[in-house]
């Protein structure tokens, strides 16, 4: 009986937390409307998130792109279809790897930071102090971070895509001996509306996932320093898993609506 009970308890907890997360997310979105707008906070967060994650994203992009190109060019050579390397690279990177890798990297680096910062402000009663001074902490702290993510995650994804495809090109010309023209023609062939749309829709959705979960975890952190630490870990894990699940859902939804555009 024990495992069943455990499962039921877990499910109850999951349902309760999901509901609270949902309500909190609604409040976050509502806080985007109406005065005051914390413009300088928003730009500061854009800088922190964008520039701060750039190195990580570039590194991820280049190693993913080169690794993939290396593996695929060997395999394609067996079939005498090395010329298709660019197509495979474009599709795999733009549709899947670029968004997911960037999303998970930003979740690891930024979600933890957001949760830790807001959580420790909560535990030292700084959030209460804000409210006492007539400031809405969701508007002041959560909204600028959400906007910064919505802008920066797509930008970082594009950077990751470009770097990865360029990394593949380096492998193509130096190791697989495919001409630049062949590679880039194949890449450009796959830059159709459907692929570009899905490649931008995903990071947009991931930005909301990261923003909602990291802020929610920060605002609900409880139990002092230890509690903030736990919330931070959970924030990264939950955001990463949710990104993977959202990735699947977005793919499915976009395919069913934009079938003719690929």
């Amino acid at each position: 009986m024990k495992p069943v009970q455990f499962l039921i308890e877990w499910f109850k907890h999951f349902a309760y937390e999901s509901q609270r997360l949902f309500i909190f997310s609604g409040r976050m979105v509502a806080s985007l409307y109406g005065r005051p707008f914390y413009v300088s906070e928003t730009f500061e967060q854009m800088y922190l998130i964008g520039v701060g994650s750039l190195f990580l994203v570039v590194l991820t992009g280049i190693s993913a792109g080169q690794g993939m190109a290396l593996q695929f060019s060997n395999e394609l050579a067996d079939f005498g279809s090395k010329n298709y390397l660019g197509r495979i690279m474009a599709i795999a990177i733009i549709r899947e790897l670029g968004p997911v890798l960037t999303g998970v990297m930003v979740a690891a680096r930024v979600a933890s930071g957001i949760t830790a910062e807001i959580g420790s402000m909560k535990s030292s009663k700084q959030l209460d102090a804000m409210v006492a001074f007539g400031i809405d902490p969701i508007k002041k702290l959560a909204a600028p971070r959400l906007i910064a993510l919505i802008v920066m995650v797509p930008v970082l994804t594009i950077v990751c895509d470009v770097i990865a495809i360029v990394g593949g090109w380096m492998i193509a010309i130096f190791i697989s001996h495919i001409t630049s023209l062949t590679y880039w023609t194949a890449v450009i062939d796959r830059l159709n509306f459907g692929n570009l749309f899905i490649g931008i829709a995903k990071p947009f959705v991931f930005a909301f996932v990261i923003g909602f979960i990291s802020c929610y975890k920060g605002f609900t952190a409880e139990g002092g320093t230890k509690g903030v630490g736990r919330a931070t870990t959970e924030s990264v894990v939950i955001a990463s898993i949710t990104i993977l699940i959202a990735n699947f859902i977005v793919t499915k939804v976009v395919y069913s609506f934009l079938r003719g555009y690929f």
Partner: peptide
């Protein structure tokens, strides 16, 4: 709240 000044336990400074 504007008419209330609060000194939090341990300060709660930003």
């Amino acid at each position: 709240r504007k008419r209330i000044g609060m000194v939090f336990q341990d300060g709660a400074l930003f």
